[in-house]
Structure formats: C-alpha cells, structure tokens
Design a protein around this nucleic acid. Structure first.
Lengths: 117, 117
DNA sequence: AGATTATATATCTTGACGAGTATATGCGAT
DNA sequence: ATCGCATATACTCGTCAAGATATATAATCT
C-alpha cells in the first residue's frame, strides 16, 4: 500500500474522502453516514492519514478528520498527460459521457464477468 | 476488480497506460520498453482491455494496443469535487501548515507536542 | 472511584491478485 | 505441413489487505 493509487482503490476510503469534501467529520459521524462498523472506519482513516490524504485534530474524546489536498493532487498530476491525449478525442469522449451519466462509486457497476474456477 | 480505481492501482498497468500515451504499441514493444515478461504484459493488457482502458487491432501476428480515453475520464470526473476543494482552500491550507498539531506517524516535519504515554 | 462514550488497535480468517512457469493458439514463411 | 515468432491462457503459489470480533486506551461525567 505504498502509492496513492492503492489508497483510493478501496471503495470505503473513496467514500470517506468524498464525505469529507463537504466538511470535517468525527469518526462517529463518518461511521453513521457511511454505515460501516467503527473499527473499519478507524482502520481506513489510519491508512488515509498515514498516506497524507487526511489529518485529524482532537476535540475532547472525538477526532475530527478533514481532507488534505496534496495526495489527491498527485493523482491529478498523473492524469495530466492523458487529459492532453483525450482532448484529441473529444467526440468519442462525449458519446461516452452521455452513456454514463449516473455512474458513481456508490453504485456497484457490473463489468465483465470473469470466470473463476 | 470492478472499478477503474482498482485497475490503475497496479504499477505495471499504469506504466503500460503511460507508455501508450505517446502512441500505440505491440505487445512485444511494451514487453521490451517496460522490461516485463510477456505473460505479465498480456495479462495486464487483458485487464485493461476488459476495463475499457485500451483496445487492440490485429496486425499480422501482432496486436497493436492503444489507449481509449473513456475509463480514465471516469477517474478524472471523480476528482472534480476535490479540485474545487483544494483550489478553494489554498490559503487555509497554509494556515494549517503553521498550525500542525499532533499528527504523528506520517511525515515528521517539525516539532509537535506529544501527549501519548 | 466507576460508568459511559469515542476511538484505536490486535488478532484471525479469508479471499483476491500478481508473479512465474508452462503450455496453447494463431499467423506467416519456407 | 512444419517451423518459428507473437500473443494468449492455465495453473500453482505466496503475499497482502479487508472484514469481523474482541479488547485496549482515553476522555468525560456522575
């Protein structure tokens, strides 16, 4: 788990990050909003914190977590060359965007069926 | 492996994608450029192809692989809210850097007060 | 002090994924 | 048809990460 890409590969962590965009939240608030068990939240928060995605401050017994932009900017930077690439393919792109209006990470989308033995 | 984020979590796959930004490549060319065994290349290409990141055309015994922009655009779209966040918080971010409380175990940059046992 | 709330961590299990190796398939040339 | 090249797939194995459960730490309140 040593790259930012591995960090955001986990759906629960992406959900936490998305939740924190609006405002900082305590662990309990995250737990209730995302309906995941508290140890799960804490574990993911630890990963996010150690990877620099979030930071926390102490408020009595609570910990308030908030976003830190740097790490996600790393992802953004990696995307840059591809943005140049696909701006040359705008037409194909727009067709695709019409096709996937309501895709977000909370709705598990079915891709190819891979057969496991 | 059903989200684009899981696909690009793998370093070799990101390398393949980055290589394909410049131009399309055959499997053998990818194999030589990135110095990875051929089954590895083929396996990752399969994942990328099924996830819609690349497409291939047949050229005699070769397969030429090229980028398809749509899937990476999905990542780009997910980042959008965060871009708004960090452009809105540039100065607030600097304040936080001075404020740096008790964030441990990530990057020790300055002195921090420690109240652990 | 004990009780309650809030969060962190430890341990275990399970499943998935990537590496490596071997083998199969496909195509062109001789 | 056979050889050789290019690519795909099958299989085994090790590793690692996520979930669940239990417990620990810390702060607040009575």
């Amino acid at each position: 788990m040593d790259t930012v890409f591995e960090i955001i590969a986990e759906p629960n962590r992406r959900a936490i990050l998305s939740l924190l965009v609006s405002s900082q939240q305590s662990v309990g608030e995250i737990e209730r909003h995302l309906r995941m068990p508290q140890p799960t939240v804490s574990k993911h928060l630890r990963v996010l914190r150690e990877a620099g995605f979030v930071e926390s401050t102490v408020d009595a017994q609570r910990r308030l977590y908030r976003l830190k932009p740097e790490s996600l900017q790393e992802v953004d930077a990696w995307l840059a060359p591809f943005r140049r690439f696909w701006s040359a393919h705008v037409d194909a792109l727009e067709r695709h965007l019409d096709h996937m209006e309501q895709i977000d990470q909370s709705t598990p989308k079915k891709k190819k069926k891979r057969r496991k033995k």
